[in-house]
Design a protein around this nucleic acid. Structure first.
Ligand SMILES: [Mn+2]
Ligand SMILES: [Mn+2]
Ligand SMILES: [Zn+2]
Ligand SMILES: [Zn+2]
Lengths: 145, 145
DNA sequence: TTGTTAATGCAATAATGTTGCATTTATAAT
DNA sequence: ATTATAAATGCAACATTATTGCATTAACAA
């Protein structure tokens, strides 16, 4: 993964710098999603010293080049809504205009619970976010999943 | 909603204070999930002045009492993982020990896309988080969904 | 009305994230 | 190998989000 990522950097005209190598290596080694500050701490532990700004910029580049991707659902800044916590919170979020819409669906919950039960997980709540384009921003060339 | 929430506060022995009333009212009026600082700004706009610490504590209490709930998927602190961004990122997250596990499922994606298409949304990516108990932490009394 | 103490406000601090600019360094050119 | 170029980094400053401790205030019971 690290070597192929380095090739992508070169082929696309980006420089192969020490910070970029180091971030690639720590992500490869960790085998789990890391925050910018996670990465910084792991590098500090190995005696390396990267500024957090650099890490943010390196990660942004990696995401742009599809060498890495962000996972929005872990931890995170919180919003509150009135009402009891229901088992199902699903959102569509438009990547163009930011519009979002909440919905719920028993069928999806049932399907998810069935799958996660297979590896012993007991689901109590489902959060889901569909990223894409709302009806107003829709364009024909987006990748549908 | 505000009146019934106030009753819950009283019945459970919590005081009905001005900050608690104000946060309830602004959440009720907004009809959308609000962050603590969203709430503070909305109240400032009406000439009210609540400390952000108070708002955090009020919201925590509301969540504990099931008068409100947090929505983790909006905005949020970001983690990165190596590898191209695939269309499907699903996690189980144990609310007891924090363990998480990623998985993907084409069937779930198809079901979600079908539903959101009905209101004109063009999905490109699916993020999902199942909150509950992992196999090791499983207990018989959790609410399954 | 008064007393009790839960709740708030404030100060301080931590954690996360962004911007501008001077300096360094990866790479191309010589 | 040396030099020139500009991309990338490091640093400082600042903005936003979040937590903790404690003095003061105010809800509500007596
Ligand atoms: Mn909801
Ligand atoms: Mn992934
Ligand atoms: Zn849109
Ligand atoms: Zn667990």
């Amino acid at each position: 993964m690290v070597q192929s990522s380095i090739k992508v950097l070169r082929n696309r005209g980006y420089r192969v710098t020490r910070p970029r190598r180091q971030v690639l290596e720590v992500l490869e080694t960790a085998q789990r999603p890391l925050s910018p500050y996670d990465i910084q701490k792991l590098l500090w532990g190995k005696g390396k010293h990267l500024d957090h700004v650099t890490i943010y910029r390196v990660l942004d580049l990696f995401c742009t080049l599809n060498l890495a991707h962000k996972i929005l659902s872990l931890g995170g800044f919180v919003r509150c809504a009135l009402g009891k916590r229901e088992g199902c919170h699903r959102f569509t979020v438009c990547r163009n205009c930011g519009a979002f819409q909440e919905f719920a669906d028993k069928g999806l919950c049932a399907g998810e619970s069935e799958i996660t039960q297979d590896f012993g997980f007991h689901a109590e709540q489902h959060l889901a976010e569909s990223l894409g384009l709302c009806s107003e921003c829709s364009s024909p060339q987006g990748d549908s999943v």
